[in-house]
Amino acid sequence: MTASRRQFLRYGTAATAAIAADTLRIAAFPGAGTARAQGRPLLKAGDQKGGLRALLESADALRGLSYDIQWTEFPAAAPLAEALNAGAVDCGPIGDAPAIFALAAGTRIRLIGANRSDPYGTAILVRPHSALKTAADLKGKSIGTNRGSIGHFVALKALESAGLRPEDANIRFLPPADAKLALTSGSVDAWATWEPYTAMAETSGHARVLVSGRGLWSGLSYLAATDAALAARRAVLADFLQRVVRAQAWSYQHVPEFSATLARIIGISPEAARLQFERRRTQWQKIDDALIAEQQRTADFYLKAGLLRQRLDARTTFDTGFAIA
């Protein structure tokens, strides 16, 4: 058993004991258990907080599949990247910064589809009555976030924007559920996170945005697929990506319906679901030279911050053979 497989299994064991905390959920559509018996391909799709599954189901975009889908849900990109590396899932959504971390660590994936969202909800949150008012106030304070996440990236960018170095704040690496609890209890001064966690914290009254991601983060995220899946199920991945793109267009024409489905599937309030969805304004786009250059700048920033050991050539991490309708 490989080290990456052991790492994923350790994560999976802990996750099974914490299903109520949304650490890991698995569902099959429409019948993954009989996929091999029927001779149908099986796509093992990873998801973050139910976003892709909610999108496809609400748009009725899974009708007429020639393959089956097994969904595995993760609370953040880091455990999803571990699952991709272990071969436990074939594909999944991942932000630009965690994708860089995964690729730099040797995860055998390619980025096959790109989307851009309004980066506001990737933000640094503080308690409602916190005395912190600006990014400069983070000097000497503690910030909870996932290592290598887009939250981590925004935290570093926020510090830089205030003329601060990473070591000027105490960055504590915590998964979302733990970081939320730490902020609420006062164990950390701030929480650097992303949607839907930002909208959930805002609408519940537990936090406010200190620094938003606007002007700090590109808003880029990707659909990543493993090299093994690309070799064996390329046509399936192409079909899946096109269904996601069409469903995204549908979602912004049917905001109430999609928001309700999103709230139901990921288990958050309708208010939080609609807030995070409407302000993200996600659009899928072509992977071109300009986009690759943006990804390279993000990778170079992580290198400068000392979080990568060597420069990552972003161009080699994309598979540009998937068209966006």
Rank of each mutant, 00 (worst) to 15 (best):
L132N: 07
L159R: 12
R116Q: 10
L183I: 03
T203A: 03
L210F: 09
L132F: 12
T198P: 08
L174N: 09
G113K: 12
S212Y: 05
R116T: 11
E160A: 10
L125P: 02
A192Y: 07
A131M: 07
A207C: 04
L174E: 03
T145K: 04
R172W: 00
A162V: 02
G163M: 04
R116M: 09
P119C: 11
A201Y: 01
G121K: 12
L181K: 14
A182F: 11
G213R: 09
E160T: 06
I112Y: 01
T193G: 13
L125D: 02
Y120W: 11
S117V: 15
A114C: 11
G215H: 05
T184Y: 14
T122A: 02
H206R: 08
H206F: 07
K139I: 11
T193M: 11
S212L: 00
L216T: 06
P128F: 07
L164H: 03
L111C: 01
A136C: 06
S117N: 10
P175K: 05
L220S: 03
W194G: 12
P128N: 05
A177N: 14
E167H: 12
R147I: 15
N115D: 11
R165E: 09
T198I: 08
E195K: 15
I124A: 07
L174D: 07
G113Y: 11
T145E: 01
R214Q: 13
R172L: 10
V209L: 06
T198R: 12
L183D: 09
S187D: 15
A131K: 15
P166G: 09
A177Q: 14
K139R: 14
L159K: 01
A177Y: 11
I124Y: 02
N115F: 00
G148V: 15
V126D: 01
S161A: 15
I124K: 06
V126Y: 07
F153I: 14
W217N: 10
V188A: 06
P196K: 13
L164W: 03
P176A: 04
G121E: 13
H152G: 05
F173R: 04
L159Q: 07
W191L: 13
T134R: 13
D178F: 08
D178M: 02
E167N: 06
P128H: 03
N170S: 12
A199D: 14
I150Y: 04
F153D: 12
G186K: 03
T134G: 07
S161L: 15
G151W: 00
A190P: 06
K157R: 15
T184L: 11
A177C: 03
G215I: 02
P128T: 06
V211I: 07
P119N: 10
F173N: 10
A169K: 05
G205Q: 00
A182G: 06
S204F: 00
W217V: 08
A158H: 14
P128W: 03
L210V: 03
F153N: 10
A169M: 00
A158T: 13
L138W: 12
W191A: 07
E167T: 12
R147K: 14
I112S: 04
E160C: 03
I112G: 00
L181A: 13
T122H: 04
I150P: 07
I171W: 01
A192S: 13
G121C: 12
